[in-house]
Structures are given as C-alpha cells and as structure tokens.
C-alpha cells in the first residue's frame, strides 16, 4: 500500500463553532494506482489531502505513506516522497519568483546537486521549453502556470503526487492538455496519483478507482469501470452522476439533500 488512511478525523474550531470536516475516513491507495476523491465543495476532500501531505497537523487516526506511519510533523525526507499540486494556478506560484527560482528552491532545500540540469529536464518533462525558464508567473497563461506547479512537484522525483482540483480553474482545452500530461508522467515515473475533484468525468479519464465523499464521510468506493457503467450503490453517488450529465428539468426536481 502506498497510502493507508484509517479512521481519519479532522475538526476545525472549538466549542460550539467546531466543524468536523473529516469524519472517520478510511481508504488506501496501492502503489502506482491513480485514485480519485470526489464530492461536492465542503465535503472534506482537500482537508484529507492536506492531512496526508503534512500541511495540516490537527488530525487523529492513522496515516501511513509508503509503509511508514506519519505523525503531525514530517521529516524532511517525507517531502521527497510525496508532493502536492494545488487548484489555483494563480495562487500557487510566488508572484516575485521566476520559474527558475521556483524550481531551484526545492533543489536547494534538499541539497541536491546539478540544479541546472534538473531544471531543464523537468521543464522539458512538463512540456515547457527552456524559453519559459526565466519568466515570471504573470508572463504565463493558466495552463503554463499549472505545468510549472507540476514541474515544481516533480523536481524532487516523488513517488506520490497529490492533486487538488488541478484542472478546475482551467479551460477545457487546457484541461485536456494537463490530463494528458499527468497520464504520461504517471506512466513514465511510475507515480501514485491521488486526484481530488468534483468532476466525475475527469476521474473517469485519469483514475482507476475512486471514493465519493459527502459532508466529511466516505460514502462509497468504486472502480472507474463501475462508474462508467453507472453502477453506483449509494443514492448520493447516483445523484452526483445524474447531475454530471447536464441539465434536465425533471432530474433537477428530484434532487434532495443527503446528510
């Protein structure tokens, strides 16, 4: 197992204002697998991902990555193993750093040599030529920025890539490019992917297996094969599937809230 999560509980706030953002989530992702985590906004997908990545340290339960149990604080070596790509390509790159500086930073932190060659290689890997190396983020389009963010995650040669809605802020044509890129990188580097999204079609395109979340709980796990056949068991998942098929007056009428 590459990622093993058991009974993950995450709460925010105290006393009467406390929200349980993640409530008893148990899931595991095999090595080399591409796993989708879907659900509507606020269902706790990002919170799960941030706990796995080590950004959020207020959780209970068990998180193991590559067979090693993880605590709240991560050793530096963890970050070479597991990297993350964020949703908003406009917010995830430092506005005053060039692409070169952005990619050189992780190399410097981990004391890896050969920065020049690594940067050139990873830029080529994500489909950006050396011409992009000394640009600032404001000189890049949304899709190019997301490629830089992916390059930054890959520069440490991790085995796990956590993706938080990596294409939600992009146009469909650019989304297709990024999805193709992720598929190719996964094959070339043997990456394990965890993809958080609200878009079932994206999961169907890139993942092998998926879990559906609603209000902090894991509702259902299924294979993408089952998703494609529409073979969901839970009514909540079925509703999500129907809503993804486009607008239909009668269907909209049938929607209800699942607690």
């Amino acid at each position: 197992m590459m990622i093993d999560i058991q009974d993950l509980q995450i709460r925010f706030g105290q006393g009467a204002d406390a929200v349980t953002a993640v409530d008893g989530v148990t899931l595991s992702v095999r090595e080399g697998e591409s796993f989708g985590l879907v659900g509507e906004s606020g269902s706790g997908k990002s919170t799960v991902l941030r706990a796995v990545s080590g950004l959020n340290d207020e959780w209970t339960g068990r998180i193991a990555v590559a067979g090693t149990e993880q605590g709240a604080k991560r050793p530096r070596g963890f970050y070479k193993l597991c990297q993350m790509v964020f949703q908003d390509p406009y917010g995830s790159l430092h506005p005053r750093h060039t692409v070169d500086r952005i990619l050189a930073e992780p190399i410097a932190i981990h004391g890896l040599g050969d920065a020049d060659a690594r940067i050139v290689r990873v830029l080529r890997d994500v489909g950006l030529g050396p011409a992009f190396r000394f640009r600032y983020p404001h000189q890049l389009s949304g899709g190019q920025r997301q490629r830089v963010a992916i390059a930054r995650a890959l520069v440490l040669e991790p085995r796990v890539l956590l993706l938080d809605e990596p294409t939600s802020a992009l146009d469909v044509s650019v989304q297709a490019e990024i999805l193709n890129l992720l598929r190719r990188l996964r094959a070339e580097h043997g990456l394990t992917l965890v993809l958080v999204t609200h878009n079932l079609a994206v999961v169907a395109n890139l993942c092998d297996r998926l879990a559906v979340m609603n209000r902090g709980r894991l509702v259902e796990e299924m294979t993408v094969e089952e998703l494609r056949r529409g073979a969901a068991r839970e009514p909540y998942t079925l509703q999500l599937l129907r809503a993804s098929q486009g607008y239909d007056r009668a269907t909209a009428e049938s929607f209800r809230d699942y607690a």
């Binding site: 044509s173 297709a176 890139l206 993408v224």
Partner: peptide, 20 residues
C-alpha cells in the same frame, strides 16, 4: 469541434484527449 472533443466523458474509456 475541438472544444467538444477535449471534454472528458464519464462513459468513455481512459486515454489521451484530443488537444485543440
């Protein structure tokens, strides 16, 4: 046509999407 083709669809098998 390019925009339509680049949309992933739930019913389709995984694979590279045509790029515009």
């Amino acid at each position: 046509r390019g925009l339509l083709a680049s949309l992933p669809r739930i019913g389709e098998p995984p694979g590279d999407l045509p790029v515009l």
